[in-house]
Computed example of a mutant assay.
Amino acid sequence: MTTLKYIRPLFRFLNCSSTLTSQRFIHIERRKDHVRLIDKHDTMDFHYIWLRHNCPAIGKSIHPKTGERVVDCAEIPSNIEPEQVEFVDSEKKLKITWSKDHTSSFDLSYLLANAYGKNRIEAKKPQGKVDDIEIVYNKDQYDAYIRSCSERLKKFGLVIVRKRSLDTEEIIKDFLPCGASVVETHFGRIEDLRTDNITNEHTDQLGYTDAAINLHTDQPFIADPPGMQLLQCIRRADTGGANTLVNAAHAAVYLREIDPNAYYLLTTVPIHFHRKQKQFTSLHVGPIIQTEGDEIKQIRHSYFTLAPFNFPFWLTTAYYDAYRKYASILYDPQCQYRVTLNSGDFVMYDNFKMLHARDSFTGPRHLRGIYFRQTDVWKKLAKFDKEK
């Protein structure tokens, strides 16, 4: 028993060592600020500045007697690029030529052991194409309709369904498993979003006016906002009233790619979301972008419920810059879905990922808003996915 205790870790070590030394990279791609090594199954990305900083060359980077680094990374230009990158020594080493009198030679086992950019998926700017998310309801193909909703909600975070029904309760049943109920809020069970509302409570807010409303998530001022929202059109406006939606989670990943500092501030600095109405108040404190490791878990974004920022003086303008940088992606028309709902249409979206907005309008526009728990919706949709 004692012997096995030590043999098992040894086997794991030998197996790991074998992986580090046996893997062969067969292709090199040079990028603007980094190099990508590619084999049949994996990729590894290394910034040029990282490679220069960790150069093992004796004399140029490492002291010949002490083996210590002699170059401070502050001395290395941030835009450094090599003259040549190639595999050598039967593809066991990566040779980088910085200049005619300076080369670096890295063992692939060293790069594998320090692969901070392994199998990295490059974030691209979100693309909002309405054709991707729009379907037309067919009562004779109900199961296909539900599966189509599921596929689009998973991939894009939203779905638009044309010509479904004016029967709100019928649509609710499409997304609720047996025994589940919609999420009631301080407005009530179902919101009637119209200027002459007499059915809901606490209507002293923008949704019950004809004013334009910019991009936001719903209920960010409570601890546990509803995860899904459905907006059903009962009557479209005479003019205006179009909706805009954008996948803020995808935008956040893209922000991380192009401006890590802005992303860091928006994921770590808490702000106050404070809803203050005549007879209702609620406060939540947290960052705009909530993460778990590298995963975006939830976006809270609501310009009209933001309390005054109360940061240290040195942080305030930096935070505004980060907020503005994120907004520049969210408000880019290329990233947005622009839709006008007609009577009987609805849009359903993930309230943890999507922001939505509305143009100002004229006429008796009437939409109904219904909130769902994500667990309920996915449970109902999973039933149809299994029957596919």
Rank of each mutant, 00 (worst) to 15 (best):
K139F: 09
Q232L: 15
Y371H: 11
Y48L: 13
I7Y: 12
S109K: 08
I258D: 03
V85Q: 11
N54D: 00
V71C: 06
E169R: 05
F304L: 09
D131Y: 03
R164L: 02
P312F: 04
D259T: 01
E81L: 13
T66C: 06
D107S: 14
D196V: 08
T291Y: 04
G241H: 00
I135P: 02
C149W: 00
P226W: 06
Q279N: 05
H102K: 10
R152H: 07
L215I: 05
F11K: 11
G286S: 09
V130G: 07
I271Y: 01
Y254F: 11
T21D: 01
P260V: 05
N261Y: 07
P260G: 01
A237T: 02
A318C: 08
P225L: 11
R189V: 08
E29I: 01
F372D: 09
K40R: 03
E184H: 07
A237Q: 07
H53R: 14
Q229M: 14
S360M: 06
C73S: 15
D332P: 03
T199N: 14
I26C: 10
K129Y: 07
I38N: 01
Q141G: 15
I146R: 14
K325F: 00
C178V: 12
P225V: 14
G207F: 04
G240H: 12
E201W: 10
A327H: 12
K40T: 03
P226D: 05
D45L: 10
I26P: 00
V159F: 06
Q290M: 15
F87R: 09
P364K: 12
T43K: 05
I146V: 14
V269L: 13
N138L: 06
L283N: 13
A211D: 10
S282K: 07
I160Y: 01
C149R: 04
K325N: 12
V35W: 08
M1C: 15
F384H: 07
K155D: 08
S150C: 08
T199V: 10
A318L: 13
H186S: 09
A322P: 04
S18Y: 05
S17D: 10
G240S: 12
K32W: 00
S90P: 06
Y337C: 15
G157Y: 02
L230A: 00
Q205C: 15
Y349G: 03
Q279F: 07
Q298C: 09
Q127E: 08
D42I: 08
R24F: 04
S302H: 12
R164E: 03
V35L: 05
T66L: 00
A113T: 05
K276L: 15
N214A: 06
R368E: 02
E86C: 14
V35C: 08
E29L: 02
R31I: 01
A307K: 09
D131N: 04
Y6L: 15
S360E: 07
D33V: 13
I234P: 02
Y326T: 03
